[in-house]
Design a protein around this nucleic acid. Structure first.
Length: 769
RNA sequence: GGGAGCUUAGCUCAGUUGGUUCAGAGCACCACGUUUACACCGUGGGGGUCACAGGUUCGAAUCCUGUAGCUCCCACCA
């Protein structure tokens, strides 16, 4: 204890320093150093990975859309991945982080169509080939932008491994999987009710439809009875334009109000079509008037009832959302215009009983925001039931661990037995993998890799067929039908299934980092594909990031104008500061409220470390006898403290508590290292520091830089090289973190006690003034 | 309609198996400080009946029940 006080005498005293000749800048400026180090790392090949004897740590980056530019969500998602990769590297793993982009069928096609329109080109006037030429041109121009931007963030991606979901090998893999699943009986073609996007003019999968509550008008319409014009049935609907497709009126069989009417007929107003009144126990007696108009072409329930009662299907809508000829009226007019007009016309003729305000759920297209129309249509389907079962198991038994675990529930609900539904995989688009189905003129179908192969197959059934008469299906596959192969195909799975060293080494990958919004679209399906084709999980853990929101908790969006320009932020504050700001506020699975103050904190932190460097460099000019040797309490205390924190940090990382880990490192550096340790060892005015002390301080600093490096790679690398001269090839990024050693808690407690005493003495001095 | 989760200082969040290292951290705030590493700083300080109401217990932010509010996911009620 005597020694404790002895060393700390100087802490009470005011210390003055003469500034030594400074060759370090006053403040750290990230801009220069970030570009310098990124190129350096890249040139040294630190980002690349090849299979070797070491343990692999692999992440496949969720491929951003080729339409994308870097935004806050990417900053979060990719910072997390980079932190994981860099820590794994520090722990001596062979790390491999695979970049790439997604062709994003519907989103990209919409953008290309819009771009063409601006140039005065109508997609409908182009051939498929011409359109694809434009699309590829567009992809070449904009497709890689986001990958370039990720370099600014400091992402240690293996640039030798860039993949695109429409690369030739990838395209081929998707087609082969289609053919394989078809041959296994898991893919089929059929007419079903689908979600139709009238804006993109394509079918959508169930998950691509977002339900929102909207204010509607519930219109009560009178349907006159055929046998007695003075009587009528009243039906409520929010989609009055669909009455033109009505084929029946349904009531509950036990409803006393209508019991006698079952079997009689009504007229559909305006078009005077006679339709029967039928009984079905699907009808809710309590709801509305207890009568349901049955429009099988435009409502799934109505369709089911129609099937049951053998009713006609009258499709009153065109693919662009205008009324079709079958509607008889308003042909060619838009559905929403007609919705208003038809109410007026009905009112004029006395068919409207009343109109009420009403709130109901309406489906919107995830991509185009168009109101979805349920529509009966011939599409390709993938049967999910068999594939879902093993994919559900591996998550429920924690073979794949979800962080946070609450998403297991969500996953289970979707994948569980009766809930899982067949996947509509065809899209009426051109940008994507074209469905390998071929048809002859006699109604035969062949599934084949090429037209020639298809022709061979079709000839067997149709001997007079000529190859020119073979037509390929016009549709392409859902984007996710290619994305689900991502962890496989980025390692060249398809072309070499038997003896593929890459797959054997890198698959299963370690951690998938993604948002919970695509848990069904993507996560679930990758697991299914992995189980189907490798009988192995595609990744061991899934880390779900939150959604980035603004201070007020709103999602970031272009419309709100609350989306910060990420590149500008990096330009102004440095990538490290941005990474810090994002990581400090992002616990797993929680939304991240974006706030520039976090970035400022990061910038301040960089400056703090920079100044610690400056201080230590000053010590160099004061080497002498000093008053501390390596057994002195200050050194012993800090080493123990650091080891304790390191152990804590490793625990946090194992549980993906990245923000916690960063906070601990931040506090260790700022409070323990700078505020206490460096003050402890700081030589008094005109005093000296021992060589031993200085070298210990530097080695501690080294170790701290390593701990911080995954979060703030640039500033730590810069300081690492400023601290002492390093031989060629000695870069922080490739160093390994010392394993957490044991530590002595009593030393740490003594330190805390000493700190408390010093604080109290300071207080007393202040008060006595 | 079904399900999941959340509610701790002004803000963002930690609080593992219930007990004086349990009421914490960072930011923000206030006061003081021209101490040459750092004002992108230092020192010190204020601030919470841990959503609410019950219950279990010697003892609950921590377990149970109920209530309220918020968030998200799923769902074919016209």
């Amino acid at each position: 204890m005597r020694q404790l006080f002895a060393i700390r005498y100087s802490l009470f005293a005011k210390k003055k320093y003469l500034c030594p000749s400074m060759n370090l800048a006053k403040n750290y400026s990230p801009q220069e150093s970030e570009n310098k180090w990124y190129s350096h790392w890249n040139e040294q090949g630190y980002f690349t990975s090849e299979p070797n004897d070491k343990e692999a740590y692999t992440i496949v980056m969720p491929p951003p859309n080729v339409t994308g530019i870097l935004h806050m969500g990417h900053a979060l998602n990719n910072s997390v991945q980079d932190v994981l990769i860099r820590f794994a590297k520090l722990k001596g793993k062979n790390t491999c982080w695979v970049p790439g982009t997604d062709h994003a069928s519907i989103a990209t096609e919409a953008k290309v169509v819009a771009m063409l329109k601006e140039q005065g080109i109508d997609k409908n006037n182009l051939t498929r080939e011409e359109f694809l030429e434009y699309a590829f041109e567009w992809k070449e121009k904009y497709g890689g932008i986001i990958l370039q931007q990720l370099k600014k963030l400091g992402c240690s991606l293996d640039w030798n491994r860039v993949n695109f979901t429409m690369d030739d090998h990838y395209y081929s893999a998707v087609i082969d999987v289609f053919i394989d699943l078809y041959n296994k009986g898991k893919i089929y073609r059929g007419v079903k009710m689908i979600n139709w996007d009238p804006s993109a003019k394509t079918a959508l999968g169930d998950e691509e439809v977002i339900h929102k509550q909207v204010n509607s008008k519930l219109v009560y319409i009178k349907y006159p009875m055929v046998d007695d014009a003075t009587k009528h049935m009243t039906i409520a609907t929010v989609r009055p334009e669909t009455i033109l497709g009505d084929v029946a009126i349904a009531v509950h069989p036990d409803d006393p109000r209508y019991k006698d009417l079952v079997g009689k007929k009504c007229f559909v107003p305006l078009i005077n079509r006679e339709i029967p009144i039928i009984a079905d126990d699907y009808i809710d007696i309590e709801f509305g008037t207890g009568c349901l108009k049955v429009t099988p072409a435009h409502d799934i329930n109505d369709f089911n009832i129609g099937q049951k009662h053998n009713l006609e299907v009258i499709d009153t809508l065109n693919e662009d959302g205008t009324m079709s000829e079958a509607a008889q009226l308003y042909i060619g007019q838009d559905r929403f215009a007609v919705r208003k007009q038809i109410v007026k016309d009905l009112e004029e003729k006395g068919y409207v009983q009343k109109v009420e305000d009403y709130q109901n759920q309406v489906g919107f297209s995830e991509r185009t925001d168009a109101v979805i129309e349920p529509r009966l249509s011939m599409q390709w389907w993938c049967d999910m039931k068999e594939m879902a079962a093993p994919a559900l198991d591996v998550v429920m038994n924690d073979e794949i661990k979800f962080y946070p675990a609450k998403f297991k529930n969500t996953y289970k609900h979707w994948m569980d037995g009766d809930n899982i539904r067949d996947w509509c995989i065809s899209r009426q688009l051109w940008w994507g993998q074209r469905i390998p189905a071929y048809y002859d003129n006699a109604g035969n179908t062949a599934i084949a890799k090429s037209k020639e192969e298809a022709f061979e197959q079709l000839k067997i059934k149709n001997s007079t067929l000529k190859i020119d008469e073979v037509k390929q299906d016009e549709d392409v596959l859902d984007t996710w039908f290619s994305s689900w192969l991502w962890p496989l195909e980025v390692f060249g799975w398809n072309k070499n299934k038997e003896n593929n060293q890459e797959i054997d080494y890198y698959y299963p990958t370690a951690t998938l980092v993604t948002g919970p919004d695509i848990i069904f679209f993507w996560v679930a399906r990758m697991i299914m594909a992995g189980m189907e084709y490798k009988n192995k999980i595609p990744f061991q853990q899934v880390y779900y990031t939150g959604i980035v929101r603004d201070k007020q908790g709103r999602k970031l969006s272009k419309q709100l104008g609350n989306s910060p320009d990420l590149l500008e932020l990096i330009e102004n504050h440095g990538a490290d500061a941005v990474r810090f700001g994002v990581m400090i506020a992002a616990p797993a699975g929680n939304d991240l409220l974006y706030d520039e103050s976090g970035i400022e904190q990061g910038r301040n932190f960089m400056n703090k470390i920079w100044n610690a460097l400056k201080l230590i460099k000053m010590f160099e000019e004061k080497i002498g006898e000093g008053d501390l040797d390596k057994t002195s309490f200050a050194h012993v205390w800090f080493e123990n403290k650091m080891e304790a924190v390191k152990k804590d940090v490793e625990k946090d990382l194992a549980q993906f508590k990245l923000s916690e880990a960063l906070k601990k490192i931040y506090s260790l550096i700022w409070n323990d290292f700078c505020s206490w340790y460096l003050e402890f060892i700081k030589p008094p005015f005109e005093g000296t520091i021992s060589k031993q002390s200085l070298s210990l301080a530097k080695s501690f600093f080294d170790e701290l830089l390593k701990m911080l490096h995954p979060f703030m790679p640039f500033v730590t690398e810069e300081i690492y090289h400023q601290l002492i001269e390093r031989p060629e090839g000695d870069d922080l990024m490739t160093r390994s973190l010392f394993d957490a050693r044991g530590f002595d808690t009593t030393v740490i407690e003594e330190g805390a006690l000493l700190q408390a005493i010093i604080t109290q003495v300071r207080d007393a001095r202040v008060k006595n003034k």
